[in-house]
């Protein structure tokens, strides 16, 4: 092995890394490693400059909104935020949180767990280092060990979706295609179960097809196309997140069935989240209702909880479930301003 040769290349690439480091440190998302408190402990008094480590499972429309909500609440409190994205890889998330706690020595961690069970190792690690661990958006398995958790209420949201279907089915019976999200996500499970439970016994609404998507857009696309093909009688679709909406719309377009309300081809559709795509579809009347997630609340309450927890206090209530806001064609004019996706 030519050790000198390799060393030469190693130096060259490490130098390139330096350049990259220089470029990337001007990026807004991840800055200021390290913080004031050496052990990141609970000694931070009110008014002290805290650094908060934020670990997301992925980055998309709603996550960006959640990130901004956290950032603005943090700015208001004078805190700094260090931000990481795990690309849907639980091991990467565990690694990143470990870096946040041990290397960057953050004062608190706010996480959206890719895997509600496997995040326990990070929770244990945070506890061992006396760092408050907060979770938002997705419920974790070990809810007792986190300092604070704020999520939506997936079962209630699923039921809200069902309510829209039940209402619409009074005029025409609905045969529903139900997409299901990734089953490591409590939201996916809750949104499915809440929806299914609310429909039990209703004669006008039938679920004819359930498509597992694993929160993957291409699975949603192919699954929807195939379902529409297999059962042309489908006249309604439930997508448990606006994240999958582009794929569903694509499948409908390919089957020549994407049409606004009033058109005979229109497929009754309801989603959850309230992101810009959802809002746009509501305006174009291709989407009938969207249950919007209270993203701003997540940010505000999480930061407030950080202040309490780092001050040594106990956060009460320890878990909060925030219901979604139903946006449908009837209340669009009055309600759309409260939906985060319609704001931009």
């Amino acid at each position: 092995m030519k050790s000198v040769g390799i060393s030469r290349y190693a130096v060259a690439v490490v130098a390139a890394s330096l350049v990259l480091a220089g470029c990337s440190s001007t990026k807004s998302s991840s800055t200021s490693p390290g913080s004031s408190a050496a052990s990141g402990g609970s000694a931070a008094a009110h008014g002290k400059k805290l650094t908060i480590g934020v670990s997301f499972d992925l980055l998309n429309s709603i996550r960006s909104a959640e990130k901004n909500a956290i950032q603005s609440a943090a700015d208001a409190a004078g805190y700094t935020v260090v931000f990481d994205v795990a690309d849907q890889d639980p091991q990467k998330q565990a690694s990143q949180i470990q870096d946040l706690i041990q290397a960057k020595k953050v004062d608190a961690v706010i996480a959206i767990a890719q895997d509600g069970q496997q995040i326990s190792s990070s929770i244990s690690l945070a506890k061992a280092h006396d760092v408050p661990f907060l979770t938002i958006d997705r419920a974790v398995a070990d809810q007792q060990s986190v300092s604070f958790q704020i999520t939506g209420d997936p079962k209630a949201d699923g039921a809200a979706v069902a309510a829209e279907f039940i209402n619409a089915a009074k005029t025409t019976p609905l045969k529903v295609l139900e997409l299901v999200g990734g089953l490591t996500d409590q939201n996916a499970i809750g949104r499915r179960d809440g929806f299914n439970a609310a429909l039990v016994g209703n004669p006008n609404v039938t679920i004819v097809s359930q498509v597992p998507t694993d929160w993957k857009p291409d699975q949603a696309l192919d699954g929807t196309s195939n379902a529409l093909q297999k059962d042309p009688g489908i006249n309604a679709i439930y997508s448990p997140s606006d994240f999958l909406l582009p794929s569903v719309q694509s499948a409908l377009t390919a089957a020549n069935r994407l049409a606004p309300i009033g058109d005979a081809k229109h497929v009754f559709m309801v989603t959850i989240d309230g992101d810009p795509n959802g809002c746009k579809a509501m305006k174009a009347k291709t989407l009938d209702a969207d249950i919007a997630t209270p993203v701003a609340d997540f940010g505000k309450q999480a930061i407030a909880a950080v202040t309490t927890a780092t001050g040594g206090g106990k956060v009460d209530p320890q878990t909060v479930q925030a219901k979604g806001l139903t946006l449908n064609q009837a209340n669009f004019a009055t309600t759309s301003s409260q939906v985060w996706g319609c704001g931009s």
């Binding site: 890394s17 480091a21 990337s24 440190s25 998302s29 991840s30 800055t31 990481d84 870096d99």
Partner: peptide
């Protein structure tokens, strides 16, 4: 090292 340097993923 890259993490410590703040390099994005």
């Amino acid at each position: 090292g890259m993490s410590l340097l703040g390099l994005q993923d």
